[in-house]
């Protein structure tokens, strides 16, 4: 990898909050400095690059012309389409124009985070700017969605290094997310899962059960419907696992998570949510049947997961 040219990456920013960039630089393995010095050539990224204005725009044009068909386009944020796109202006023009221009010669596109993948907070109802996810604007390129607000740092660098190492796209699920990181729910591997299965729940903030680390399901945890690697990237739990610190998952890697009711509403109100609503009851009422309940629960969960994916695809 050291001797061949580093893969050029063009990283553009639309409507966003820059949490994806901030997450990216938190990566511990590989270190962010090793990614930008030794693995990729980050030839354009308005958040970190030295040049500005015309010189920055020139770096952008030079890169996409010189490496046509060979660069990765990383998109953080999304284009707003209302007001002729002028809710997000770069170089005096609508951001959506820059996005389209950059996409033309890209080998592949990475949609960083919930903004690029699904629209995120600015697309929450009533979406005043018509903030639009990348795949609805660019329809003729392979797109890897890496959702989350923000995505996990090592998932971000993992996606990039996978492409560099194996020289191919990672396997994607039906929503376009890398299967290696997004094919299981937080709930499936949550370290508090035994408390769920045993019917041991936090009932109020800072109650005795909270102090014992019981399940946060009743406090609104969205772990049971959220596909992400937060509970399965063990070495990095210290940087990205809300449940560990006593707050439920808010489902930040799911499409439209801002519009699913309060973050503190229990999941029974969510339509796709089937068996866990009753599993909750089973957990509460039949401690003697826990073993059986877990087995049934696991089996049905697999079916439900497949079903959910089909519905979403």
């Amino acid at each position: 990898m050291e001797t061949k040219p580093r893969t050029p990456v063009v990283w553009v920013h639309g409507l966003e909050c820059t949490c994806c960039s901030e997450s990216f630089i938190r990566s511990a393995h590989p270190l962010a400095k090793d990614v930008v010095l030794s693995m990729i050539s980050l030839d354009y990224d308005d958040t970190l690059m030295a040049a500005a204005g015309h010189a920055a725009e020139a770096a952008f044009e030079e890169t996409i012309a010189k490496y046509k068909g060979n660069y990765i386009l990383a998109v953080e944020g999304n284009p707003p389409l209302n007001e002729d796109g002028m809710f997000c202006i770069t170089g005096g023009k609508p951001f959506v124009e820059k996005l389209r221009h950059a996409a033309e010669g890209a080998k592949a596109i990475i949609s960083w985070g919930a903004c690029a993948s699904y629209g995120c907070v600015q697309a929450a109802a009533p979406n005043p700017t018509q903030a639009t996810p990348v795949h609805k604007v660019i329809t003729d390129k392979p797109i890897i969605k890496v959702p989350g607000c923000p995505p996990i740092a090592e998932v971000m660098t993992g996606v990039i290094t996978y492409m560099l190492t194996f020289d191919r796209m990672p396997e994607l699920d039906r929503q376009g997310r890398p299967a290696m990181f997004y094919s299981q729910r937080i709930h499936d591997k949550c370290y508090r899962r035994p408390h769920f299965d045993a019917g041991q729940f936090v009932e109020h903030w800072d109650d005795e059960n909270a102090r014992k680390g019981y399940c946060l399901y009743k406090m609104g945890c969205k772990g049971p419907t959220t596909y992400n690697a937060c509970s399965t990237v063990p070495l990095e739990r210290r940087r990205h696992f809300p449940i560990q610190s006593g707050h439920g998952c808010i489902g930040c890697s799911e499409d439209g998570f801002w519009d699913q009711g309060s973050f503190y509403d229990r999941l029974t109100t969510i339509k796709q949510f089937g068996i866990e609503a009753t599993a909750d009851q089973i957990g509460w009422t039949a401690t003697g049947l826990v073993g059986a309940a877990v087995a049934a629960h696991a089996a049905v969960s697999v079916l439900k997961r497949a079903q959910k994916k089909n519905e979403e695809a």
């Binding site: 630089i25 938190r26 210290r238 940087r239």
Partner: peptide, 18 residues
């Protein structure tokens, strides 16, 4: 990346602790 762990211990995540 180490500095922010104060957020992740008390807030579970960074960026965007709870």
């Amino acid at each position: 990346k180490e500095v922010v762990k104060v957020h992740t211990i008390f807030g579970g995540k960074n960026p965007h602790p709870n």
